[in-house]
């Protein structure tokens, strides 16, 4: 947490967040005077998800995701809380940068979608071609911008050149300079209504999906695939796939255990909001599931490091994932039942 000044001369408090999109959205709300935590935004935006997309390869590895598609979290959260946001994409980089400067000079703080690779203030391990990283721009400085990146502990400086490149990077999920800022936000939003809508939506996404690659079905699919992977792909390639899953689960700004801990934090806040003991119970259950995901990560890491070869096998890792799938299925069914009963 550290203090900064925006272009309008207002103080801005930078909060360290686990996830970029929820951190950015909550920063925009906070700037307008709505005190809302990152995990709450994450829950209201229905950020939790699961998907394994074997047909989309990214640096030669199939995509495994524990979150909803980049961009939807912000859209859903802002809609449910009821803020009026200005959003725009650009064809021309020149126009996009000019607009950013204009909006900053009007005194807004601006959220941007960028490519994480070209943001050079990141150390090497963060940098890969991913076009869905969100940052908050506070003000313009000499040949650059002051940036509050929610993933980092402190605000940083970003060069204009880097910024332009990151905003208008090409490739899958092109950001096209996507820019958003709050125009008008209700000071006392109805969070209870937003929470109920979000919980129902989340349960739908996880439980009732027609595709076998997403939601609980996707988890089971990936578990089975993991168990058979060393026979099908060979040990080395199977290890790479497993490492990629663990990386997606722990590394890319998930707050631990593939967003499960963050969702548990949301359920905890929701339990306080509704004064519901059932939701508090679900939060504990979610934490327990998160712990199993963590265990899965540790078992996978041991396989990769080839420690304790006899007991740590791909079958065990896949088995843990199956346990997660079963327990999450129960949890979301329960949540669905509770969400229908809750009064806004």
């Amino acid at each position: 947490m550290s203090s900064e000044v925006t272009a309008a001369g207002k103080p801005f408090i930078h909060h360290h967040s686990a996830h970029c999109e929820s951190g950015t959205t909550s920063a925009l709300f906070r700037d307008k005077g709505v005190e809302i935590s990152e995990s709450m935004i994450f829950g209201i935006g229905s950020g939790i998800y699961f998907g394994h997309l074997p047909f989309i390869k990214w640096v030669g590895l199939p995509i495994t995701t524990f979150r909803s598609r980049p961009g939807t979290l912000f859209a859903k959260a802002s809609k449910r809380i009821g803020g009026k946001f200005f959003t725009k994409k650009y064809h021309s980089a020149k126009k996009g940068m000019a607009d950013l400067r204009r909006v900053l000079s009007e005194g807004h703080i601006v959220g941007l979608t960028t490519n994480i690779y070209w943001l050079t203030y990141f150390p090497n391990r963060f940098r890969f071609q991913f076009n869905g990283h969100n940052i908050v721009v506070l003000r313009e400085i000499e040949n650059g911008f002051r940036v509050s990146d929610p993933v980092l502990e402190y605000p940083v400086d970003c060069l204009t050149e880097d910024m332009e490149r990151a905003r208008f990077a090409r490739g899958p999920l092109e950001p096209r300079g996507f820019m958003y800022y709050a125009e008008n936000v209700p000071l006392n939003p109805n969070l209870r209504l937003a929470c109920i809508a979000a919980m129902k939506d989340t349960c739908n996404m996880m439980l009732r999906t027609p595709f076998p690659f997403v939601g609980i079905r996707g988890m089971r699919y990936l578990a089975k695939k993991t168990i058979s992977s060393p026979d099908k792909l060979g040990f080395k390639e199977a290890c790479r796939r497993l490492a990629n899953i663990v990386r997606m689960q722990e590394e890319v700004g998930t707050g631990g255990a593939g967003f499960r801990f963050m969702y548990a934090a949301f359920l905890q806040e929701a339990a306080d909001l509704f004064a519901s003991a059932e939701l508090a119970q679900l939060s504990k259950e979610m934490t327990a599931i998160g712990d199993i995901w963590r265990e899965f990560a540790v078992v996978s890491a041991r396989i990769i490091k080839q420690r304790g070869q006899a007991e740590e096998t791909f079958a065990k890792a896949g088995g843990l994932m199956l346990i997660c799938a079963g327990r999450e299925e129960q949890l979301f069914q329960e949540l669905d039942r509770i969400a229908k009963k809750l009064q806004a």
Partner: peptide
Amino acid sequence: AYYKHNENGQYVLETNAPWAEKVS
């Protein structure tokens, strides 16, 4: 930042990367 349970059952943010993440 990582979410972590503290002794009071509340979630707090910490900055220690888990071992499994480092390895992978």
